[in-house]
Simulated scan of single mutants.
Amino acid sequence: MTTHDASELRALHVPGSPLVLPNVWDAASARAVHEAGFPAVATSSAAVARVLGYDDGEQTPVGEMMAAIARIARVVDVPVTADVERGYRLKPAELAARLAEAGAVGCNLEDSLAGGGEMVDPGEQAEFLAEVRAAAGDALVINARIDIYLGGPASRQEAVARGRRYLEAGADCVYPIGLGDEDEIRALVGEVGGPVNIYFRPGMHDLARLAEIGVARVSFGSGPHEATYAYAQSLFEKVRQGHDPF
């Protein structure tokens, strides 16, 4: 496949014309997204973990995760961005090197700890992001997750403050995962000072509405894999009952 660089992926983050990413979990799902015409492919760490037989939350051995990312990058002719949680305890330079070796030109990095979900101090997270940026240079698009909304409604002031620090540290985009209120999304987009990624989930506004309020990137997370798994369960149940599954 053609080698793609981070500048291609970075250029797709346009407020008002968002990059839409139905996240993938293996080479086959990556091919399907590519064939559907999407300009980039993103992995879901939760979905990849389940396919590999692990739970989410950095339970997947880093070698297996990177190998899965490499298989995905090998079969598509578009930029690949990888969800790598908090980096699997790798040092920033090694993380950047492993992502480049796997063929990824972007990554998600979380600001909460695996397991309990405890938030990382924003200064510590900003330092980590700055070190990743220094190691990768411009060869990596960093999507910095802001996890304070995962527990429900949260302080926009804190989210904006974290987002600004992460952008100043070198992040290309911030990702307040779990934020779904339209007014809050619009306000955060207006205040944070950089591209914003929103997680699309059932019951949310449609993609056109998210574009109208200035979102630059929309992710579907593990949702596509969960829907595919549910379909497979129903298919196998039909087989078990002796029916034609198709």
Score class of each variant (00 low, 15 high):
Asn108Ile: 03
Cys173Asp: 11
Glu118His: 12
Gly152Phe: 07
Ala36Asp: 03
Glu124Trp: 00
Gly180Phe: 10
Asp181His: 11
Arg10Ser: 09
Val141Arg: 02
Pro245Lys: 08
Ile177Tyr: 10
Pro39Gly: 11
Arg89Ala: 14
Gly190Val: 07
Asp56Ile: 02
Val75Trp: 07
Gly123Ala: 03
Glu127Tyr: 06
Glu168Gly: 01
Ala169Thr: 05
Leu52Arg: 11
Pro15Gly: 10
Glu158Asn: 01
Ala130Thr: 06
Ser44Asn: 10
Tyr88Asn: 06
Leu109Thr: 05
Ile69Arg: 06
Asp138Asn: 13
Leu207His: 06
Val33Thr: 14
Thr81Cys: 09
Ile177Arg: 08
Ala27Leu: 03
Thr228Ile: 11
Thr228Lys: 10
Ala144Cys: 11
Ala136Phe: 01
Glu212Lys: 10
Pro153Met: 02
Gln59Cys: 14
Ala40Asp: 08
Phe246Arg: 14
Gly193Lys: 05
Tyr166Cys: 00
Ile185Gly: 02
Thr2Asp: 09
Gly242Met: 04
Ala102Pro: 05
Ala70Met: 06
Gly180Ile: 07
Asp138Gln: 13
Gly178Trp: 07
Pro122Glu: 10
Glu58Cys: 05
Met66Ala: 09
Gly178Asn: 09
Val51Leu: 15
Leu210Asp: 02
Arg240Ala: 15
Ala126Cys: 04
Ile146Ser: 00
Tyr166His: 02
His13Phe: 04
Asp55Pro: 06
Gly115Ser: 10
Ile185Lys: 04
Thr2His: 12
Asp56Val: 04
His4Tyr: 08
Asp83Cys: 04
Glu64His: 10
Ser44His: 08
Gly106Phe: 09
Ala36Ile: 01
Ala104Leu: 02
Arg133Met: 03
Tyr199Glu: 11
Ala216Cys: 06
Asp147Gln: 00
Ile146Phe: 00
Ala93Ile: 07
Ile69Tyr: 10
Ala6Thr: 08
Gly137Gln: 08
Ile69Gln: 09
Ala82His: 05
Ala159Cys: 14
Thr43Ala: 10
Gly103Phe: 05
Glu58Lys: 06
Leu129Arg: 01
Val75Ala: 06
Phe236Val: 12
Asp147Gly: 01
Asp83Val: 03
Asn23Asp: 13
Gly223Val: 12
Gly194Val: 03
Met119Val: 07
Phe200Arg: 10
Ile142Ser: 03
Gly203Asp: 09
Lys238Tyr: 09
Gln125Phe: 14
His4Ser: 04
Ile198Ser: 05
Leu19Gln: 03
Glu8Asp: 11
Asn23Lys: 04
Ala134Asp: 14
Val84Met: 13
